[in-house]
């Protein structure tokens, strides 16, 4: 996006994200973004602004585009499967790192429900945060992420107080589960071509391991650990966004 104003770059990034949440075919999005980039480059060089080129209401414009583009059900299903498998691998990895893989009915039904809620919130937060100022957009995503994680925290706390293990694995089973989960997570990140994804388990489980090391294991510390991890992930997303915005275009 060399040569385009910051406003233009943000418009293209938001448009890309918004169209993705609408389930539009990735190739069509890429093709349009390239075309819009070429238009912005010439338009801005001629002294026009993003508003003059694409209109005042970016969301309405994005909806008009989405209505003409192909919605790829195959891609939506593949993305949802990747999300569910990735989240399951993430969860199993956490359990294995704790050294105790055991599930109660609360966990078996609670986590998938919290996961689906999290997915719906994530899609909505991306849509809502698009075409807003950087800080407003970031606040919306952060707020929705906290809400999404709250679902997991509720299941975690409920399991802590009322969960009765119905599946319990021994030492070897735990190691095998941990390795399998790590491999599954890495495979998904390779499939999605997202090396950044591998950073999330480190950011999330890092504080957890440190809290465990310092013997801070009360429910209050567990809650604190979750929010520290969230803050780190939020910071990583912010840095990634900034990096994507400043990244010179690969020719």
């Amino acid at each position: 996006m060399n040569g385009i104003s910051k406003e233009g770059q943000r418009f293209l990034i938001d448009l890309n994200a918004y169209l993705m949440t609408k389930g539009v075919n990735e190739k069509e999005i890429k093709s349009f973004i390239e075309e819009a980039e070429a238009h912005l480059l010439e338009g801005e060089a001629a002294g026009k602004t993003v508003v003059q080129i694409f209109g005042k209401n970016c969301r309405t414009y994005a909806d008009e585009l989405a209505a003409e583009m192909t919605v790829s059900k195959k891609e939506i299903v593949s993305n949802v499967i990747c999300f569910l498998l990735g989240a399951t691998a993430f969860w199993l990895l956490g359990e294995a790192l704790k050294g105790d893989v055991s599930f109660s009915w609360i966990v078996i039904f609670g986590y998938p429900a919290a996961l689906l809620l999290g997915l719906a919130l994530m899609v909505n937060s991306i849509r809502l945060s698009s075409f807003r100022s950087r800080w407003k957009g970031f606040s919306i995503i952060y707020l929705y992420a906290i809400l999404g994680f709250a679902g997991f925290v509720i299941v975690l706390v409920a399991d802590m107080y009322w969960g009765v293990p119905v599946v319990q694995l021994g030492g070897t089973g735990t190691v095998v589960t941990g390795v399998a989960a790590a491999l599954m997570f890495t495979s998904i990140s390779v499939y999605l071509k997202s090396w950044f994804m591998n950073l999330f388990p480190i950011l999330y489980f890092g504080p957890q391991m440190l809290f465990k090391l310092w013997d801070l294991t009360s429910p209050l510390y567990q809650m604190l650990q979750v929010y520290i991890s969230l803050a780190l992930i939020g910071l990583a997303i912010f840095i990634m966004n900034k990096w994507l915005g400043n990244r010179p275009k690969r020719q």
């Binding site: 075309e35 008009e64 003409e68």
Partner: peptide, 15 residues
């Protein structure tokens, strides 16, 4: 009409 409004039309025309 804004310049950008040609693109949804072009996408439809190409389809």
């Amino acid at each position: 009409v804004s310049e950008g409004s040609i693109y949804p039309v072009l996408i439809r025309m190409q389809k």
